[in-house]
Design a protein around this nucleic acid. Structure first.
Lengths: 105, 105
DNA sequence: TTGATGTATCAAAAAATATTGATGGGTTAA
DNA sequence: TTAACCCATCAATATTTTTTGATACATCAA
C-alpha cells in the first residue's frame, strides 16, 4: 500500500524527463518507429546538439535505449519504463475514495 | 492512434508537477487523506511559503483540488487527472512492439 | 589516407524554477 | 475590536535546466 521509496527517485526522473515539450515530441515520434538522431533532427527541426542533450536526458531516465549501427545511433522507446510510470500512477486510484480531513486542531 | 496534441500541454504540465521531490511527497501524503496546509507543513517540515508555492503548482497542473473551511484550506488529490496521465502512458504500449529502423539513407 | 558524416560533450550564456523572508488579506476567538 | 492564526503572494536571490556554438571522436567512402 505504501509507495516504494527506493523507486521514487527513478519514477521522478521519468516524470521529469516527460516534462518537456521537445522530449515529448521525441517519444511521440519514437512511438511508431525507432529512429536515428539525424532523422529526429530533420523531423523536429532542431540542431543536433540540442537533440543530443534531450536524448541523453531521456536515456538517463530509462525512457529510451539506443544502439549503434555503423555511424548511426538509433533510439527506441523502453516500454518497460513507461509501464513502471503507469503503474506508479495507477497506485493512486487503487484504494478508491480518499477520506475527507478530520478537523485540523 | 495518434496522440492528441491539444491535451499534450495539460499532460506535460502534469508530468512537470510530478517531477519534484517535495511535490511527490505532498501527493503521497494526500493519498491517504485530505490535509490542510498547516498539517502538510508539519509533516514535511518545510516553511509555509514554500509549501504554498508547490501546492499552487500542483493545483495548476490539475493534480489537486482545494476547498476552504473556516481559516483552513484543505487539499486533496484530483484522481481524474492521475487517470489521465496514466492513460497517456498506457497509449505507448497499446500497439505492441515498435519496428526497428529501416536503414537511414 | 583523407575528407565527409553522425554523434557526444563541453563551456558559456540564457532561461526557467525554486527558495527565502516580508507583507497582507481573510477568519476566528477572546 | 483586537490579536492570533492560516494562508497566498511578492520581490529578491539562488539554483537548476536549457540553449548555443565550438570541438572532438568514431565511422565510412573515396
Amino acid at each position: 500500500m505504501s509507495v516504494n521509496v527506493e523507486n521514487t527517485v527513478e519514477i521522478m526522473a521519468g516524470f521529469r524527463a516527460l516534462a518537456d515539450p521537445l522530449r515529448l515530441q521525441i517519444i511521440e515520434l519514437l512511438r511508431s518507429q525507432e529512429l536515428c538522431v539525424c532523422e529526429l533532427c530533420k523531423k523536429l527541426e532542431v540542431n543536433q546538439s540540442k537533440l543530443s542533450f534531450h536524448l541523453k536526458n531521456l536515456k538517463e531516465a530509462g525512457l529510451v535505449n539506443s544502439h549503434q549501427e555503423g555511424r548511426w545511433i538509433y533510439y527506441r522507446l523502453n516500454l518497460v519504463q513507461f509501464v513502471a510510470l503507469e503503474h506508479y500512477l495507477a497506485e493512486y486510484r487503487r484504494f478508491g475514495d480518499i477520506p475527507s480531513a478530520r478537523n485540523c486542531q
